[in-house]
């Protein structure tokens, strides 16, 4: 197990948000952290990274890390793409990536620019001027730049247009081939496609653990644990396998993504009706 949480508690502003969370993340593949809104998924991620005060035990790669500060935990080999991306809007793409470079690690710019050729083209642009999808690419690129032993990705498709969601999914799939991943995601189609194991939180505690396929195959259980909210998942176009690389236009290129940042686009049909 690359990451193990044992009885982790978090209290924020007087609310006891995590009430003894225990689970582990396999050293291979994608582990999905699931649950309805507000059950503490993001808090769990922040607890792992030491971004909130927490008690309990957290082991990373076999060593306890719960007494370390955030930057020390991260230096042990965690890449983190937070909810809302948290890219530095006033810094350029190059600067955002340069900031993510960690000492003592190789910097996989080749991989990053192969996955995100658009970022190379826009390297001198301030990240705040990019679309929401492109900003998410920067956030993911930061996690892939270093030799990480785990990457933690929190809601990577939140607020993105369906087409961009597909592209993000493809990138995450490529990433998951290289490094184990803890993924928080509401989009169940994406979860089904990427994740092996699933951990479900409810009211600050783990209520279910097991293979994602089995969980999602059980409609009643899915509804009970995750709410009826399959709508988002099902509205997503089924992802297609990326075309073999080498073509003139990379399948993951996001050139045509004209969405304003952080806005979900209206469905295609209504858009074409517009004058």
């Amino acid at each position: 197990m690359i990451l193990e949480l044992d009885d982790v508690h978090v209290t924020l502003g007087g609310s006891h948000i995590l009430q003894g969370v225990s689970f582990s993340v396999a050293p291979i593949g994608v582990t999905a952290l699931l649950g309805r809104n507000g059950v503490g998924k993001t808090t769990t991620v922040k607890a792992i990274l030491g971004l909130v005060r927490r008690t309990g035990r957290i082991d990373f790669g076999g060593d306890p890390v719960h007494r370390l500060r955030t930057h020390e935990i991260v230096r042990r080999g965690i890449g983190y793409a937070p909810e809302d991306r948290c890219v530095f809007a006033k810094l350029t793409v190059t600067e955002n990536l340069a900031l993510a470079e960690r000492r003592g690690s190789a910097h996989a710019y080749d991989l990053v620019y192969e996955l995100f050729p658009e970022l190379k083209a826009r390297s001198a642009q301030a990240v705040g001027t990019l679309s929401g999808g492109q900003q998410q690419m920067v956030a993911i690129a930061r996690t892939l730049l270093n030799d990480n032993r785990l990457i933690v990705v929190d809601e990577p498709t939140k607020g993105l247009a369906p087409k961009v969601v597909t592209e993000v999914a493809e990138v995450l799939e490529r990433a998951a081939e290289r490094v184990p991943m803890l993924l928080v995601e509401q989009n169940l189609a994406l979860v089904r496609r990427l994740a092996g194991d699933g951990v479900v939180l409810a009211a600050g505690q783990v209520v279910h653990r097991g293979p994602v396929r089995e969980l999602l195959a059980d409609a009643a259980l899915t509804r009970e644990l995750l709410g009826v909210g399959q709508a988002r998942g099902e509205s997503v176009t089924p992802p297609t396998r990326p075309a073999p690389s080498g073509g003139s236009i990379h399948p993951l290129a996001i050139v045509k993504d004209r969405q304003p940042p952080d806005e979900v686009s209206p469905p295609e049909s209504t858009r074409s009706d517009a004058p």
Partner: peptide, 20 residues
């Protein structure tokens, strides 16, 4: 660079492994 990034979002700078 760290300072400029820290002005925007201190927590994220530490989450990149930098001792802010």
């Amino acid at each position: 660079l760290v300072v400029r990034a820290g002005v925007e979002d201190r927590a994220m700078v530490t989450a990149l492994g930098i001792d802010v």
